[in-house]
């Protein structure tokens, strides 16, 4: 994840080092604090968490209801302490599909989905998801039937959204942990159907 810059010194890397030195000299951070941030970074954040929530919702209708009513409380039932934002889960149906974006920056429920992919932060995605979601979805290989209505959610405040995909056909016999393995990160954003 880190250290991929190798020994080739980029001008921007030198600029960052200068900034770091200034900040440390001004007493605003220590080497230890900076290292600590990176050591703890994303330790528990993973799309496996979001997938577990989805699999539980697929197998437990009462949990599904609670999840759609109060995402934070339902996530807490599975041991995920989602704090700092309101979690709102939006469910796909056979007639509707949900797609998430942050047009203003790149807001994203990191603890449940892991670090956001580069495409989520790209200008193209931020610009186009709200305007032509079908075209964007087709670039991800997703082609929805004509009648399916698309709801795009632009996370412009302190709510973070999570898509609850439809349970795939043919998974009736599967246990919850097996179901969770079917769920992809893109499915939780809405750029995949599951």
């Amino acid at each position: 994840m880190t250290g991929t810059a190798g020994h080739e010194e980029l001008p921007v890397a030198a600029r960052v080092r200068r900034l770091e030195e200034r900040v440390i000299a001004a007493g605003l951070a220590t080497d230890d604090e900076l290292d600590e941030v990176l050591a703890g970074l994303f330790a528990d954040a993973s799309p496996v968490n979001g997938a577990r929530i989805v699999a539980r919702a697929w197998t437990d209708p009462a949990f599904r209801e609670r999840l759609l009513a109060d995402g934070n409380a339902a996530a807490a039932e599975l041991g995920f302490a989602v704090s700092g934002y309101r979690l709102r889960v939006v469910a796909n149906t056979t007639q509707s599909h949900n797609l998430l974006v942050c047009t203003l920056c790149s807001c994203y429920p990191v603890s449940l989905l892991g670090p956001s992919p580069s495409w989520y932060k790209s200008f193209a995605y931020r610009a186009r998801a709200v305007r032509e979601p079908r075209a964007v979805l087709s670039e991800f290989g997703v082609r929805l039937p004509e009648g399916v209505e698309i709801s795009v959610w632009d996370a412009s405040a302190e709510t973070r959204y999570l898509v609850l995909p439809n349970r795939p056909a043919g998974t009736e016999g599967l246990a919850e942990d097996e179901l969770a393995r079917h769920v992809t990160r893109n499915g939780l954003i809405g750029t995949a159907t599951v």
Binding site: M1, T2, G3, T4, A5, L10, V12, A13, V16, R17, L19, E20, V23, L28, A29, E33, L34, D35, V37, L38, L41, F42, P115, P117, S118, W119, S122, A124, Y125, R128, V136, E139, F140, T191
Partner: peptide, 25 residues
């Protein structure tokens, strides 16, 4: 959309340093 661009959180060490600086500040 650069749909295949998904290199994890950081492309280079300096990006991680910027992330850490922002977090601490």
């Amino acid at each position: 959309v650069p749909v295949t661009e998904d290199s994890g959180a950081f492309h280079a060490d300096w990006e991680a340093r910027v992330f850490a600086l922002n977090a601490v500040l």
